[in-house]
């Protein structure tokens, strides 16, 4: 395998976007390229993640290409998935060996529609989607199954939410939350029982961009590249009823294939749009007690659909770039109740 590193990352996560996709992307892509000490024309491969269902039109990613400039022609690809899966494609592309650099970006504006309802359209089209089960309702089924099985408690869920809010760094236009202790959060009413408002990620708008560089060139461009030491993604069955919702077998398998199991990490960035899912993923990754979880605040304090998974990997890389961590594991998810999961292991060396 060819060594590949994340050399730069930039993002903008907000409660409500001012401007369109391109206007949001330009400054973030510019910042990612600047931090990588690369010019646009030096990028060998460009890949993006976006969702036509948010744009409300087919091939909406084509319009966003204005943000990178596709003339003279560039080698470009797209996934209708979280940007984390675009990162996977870029990592595979760099394994070919003929190019050394890749730009990944993702954009998603969850506030343009009712994303929790729109997500019903990704379900089985015959026996699930016609009932319009929203993403919160399905996650609540999973939370109840975990509570019944004793794999989490409502207090542990509230603790996840309280810690996420404490960790969150204030940024321009970011969501604001009242800082509350877990005990106080538990006094609030259920929204979709057994979930309360704090258990569910907000609808956010956002963009993220990342530059990958292979081999020695990564060391020449930046002082502390975050090396990808393992990356893998796995998926579970479409029907909720055939899955054990109290486990994340696809996370565990991806973690095994990525070489994450049995290792200790300084930082873990987990993409959990619901509090109980962080607890579930933590167990599937087999994390030790001393790892710092979601120092960025995680998806519970900012969850732009399509962006939040790539954002977890970028935030983990950031901790290696700034020297505050030597090793990190990052996770991204897609689909109802953690159907598909990606695990990425990062290291300073």
């Amino acid at each position: 395998m060819r060594d590949v590193a994340i050399v730069s990352f930039a993002n903008h996560i907000t409660s409500h976007a001012e401007g369109d996709d391109v206007e949001m992307l330009v400054p973030v892509i510019t910042e990612a390229l600047r931090a990588a000490n690369l010019k646009k024309k030096e990028i060998g491969f460009t890949v993006s993640g976006s969702c036509d269902y948010l744009g409300g039109r087919p091939f909406s990613f084509v319009m966003a290409l204005d943000a990178v400039g596709a003339w003279p022609p560039i080698e470009e690809s797209h996934v209708e998935m979280d940007g984390a899966f675009a990162l996977y494609e870029a990592w595979v592309r760099l394994q070919h060996g003929d190019i050394d650099t890749a730009l990944i970006y993702a954009f998603g504006r969850s506030t343009t529609g009712s994303t929790r309802d729109v997500l019903a359209t990704q379900l089985d089209p015959y026996v699930m989607a016609p009932l319009w089960p929203d993403s919160v309702g399905l996650a609540a089924l999973q939370a109840r199954a975990m509570l019944d099985a004793g794999t989490c408690t409502e207090r542990e869920m509230a603790q996840v939410a309280a810690r996420s809010r404490r960790s969150k760094k204030p940024g321009p236009g970011a969501h604001t939350f009242a800082e509350m202790q877990a005990g106080d959060l538990l006094g609030l009413p259920y929204t979709t029982a057994p979930l309360r408002a704090h258990d569910c990620a907000p609808d956010s708008d956002g963009v993220a961009a990342m530059v990958l560089v292979a081999g020695d060139r990564a060391k020449k461009l930046t002082s502390r590249p975050a090396w990808i030491r393992g990356i893998d993604h796995r998926i579970e069955a479409h029907q909720l009823g055939v899955r054990d919702l109290t486990k994340s077998v696809s996370t565990a398998l991806a973690a095994e294939k990525a070489g994450a199991l049995g290792k200790s990490f300084d930082v873990a960035e987990i993409h959990a749009p619901f509090s109980h899912q962080e607890i579930l993923v933590r167990k599937a990754l087999g994390l030790a007690g001393d790892v710092e979880i979601n120092p960025s605040g995680g998806a519970l304090v900012g969850n732009p659909y399509i962006v939040a998974g790539l954002d977890r990997i970028g935030e983990a890389a950031r901790r290696i770039h700034d020297g505050s961590a030597k090793s990190a594991v990052a996770h991204a998810t897609s689909g109802p109740c953690l159907q598909q999961n990606l695990v990425c292991v990062l290291s300073e060396g």
Partner: peptide, 11 residues
Amino acid sequence: TWAWVSEPRPR
């Protein structure tokens, strides 16, 4: 397993 929907969504 079950979840209580106090405010049903459209459709």
